[in-house]
Amino acid sequence: MSITIPAGTAVAPPMPDILPDVKPRRGLLGFIRRNPTMAFGAALLLAMLFVAVFAPFLGTRDPTALAPALRTREPSAQFWFGSDMLGRDVYSRVLYGTRVSLLVGFSVAICASAIGLFIGLMSGFNRIADSIIMRVMDGMMSIPPILLAIALMALTRGSVQNVILAITIAEIPRVSRLVRGVVLSLREQPYVEAAVASGTRTPAIIFKHILPNTLAPLTVQATYICAAAMITEAILSFIGAGTPPIIPSWGNIMAEGRALWQVKPYIVFFPAIFLSITVLAVNLVGDGLRDAIDPRLAKRL
């Protein structure tokens, strides 16, 4: 904003800036410049999303079609990533597997965040609820998440929904604790106390003041949950307590290929690379988000 100075007024000549303005670059290029790792992560993640959505059009065939006569073929022009023990095309299975991993990762992140947010808000605003909820959360937190997910899977039949549910339940306590912490610190803030004093009703306070401030740390947390969920899905499938084996998921492909690890390493190798790259991408995006939202945190973690 510039101030128009009437003519004839005596003013000092403009001082040169001691610290010249750094003109922040705008647009995509500027973003990449400022956050190279996050941009890299986001690009990788977008690529994986692309693969998941367009899997049928990327030179794949039916990932469940058997051809026992063509089993365990090395990677070739016919089978880009080779074929597995039942002669299924590993390339197609890995590409379709992207769908399951991303679905599990994102669903768990969204569900755990939403439920955790609700529980965290509840306990942040109600002392009685708080003492009960937090005891339950402490109890659940003391069960290692993978073990909790495994135990829940033992109760149910293997399906993608159940995997999502089991991992979500295992992740909720951590989210609730985070949200509750944020809520408690925000309640002490003068502007919130002022709002309370002026008679604003609790829902309004939550929606106007608390919620917007929890979203930032929650988003960061959600990306880490997403990454952890994809690894957990792979581990569950790997030990045989995860996604049903007729649905190709990276964990399943690795679990089926593990016996042949020494002779046909590529069956494990390709899904492992895809999984690692995707998790890496999500982690990079998470780190970038965290730095962008709260530069102080960048130093802390």
Binding site: L66, P68, A69, R71, T72, M85, L86, G87
Partner: peptide
Amino acid sequence: DYMRALVG
């Protein structure tokens, strides 16, 4: 098909 899937 069954046998190849089974015994390789």
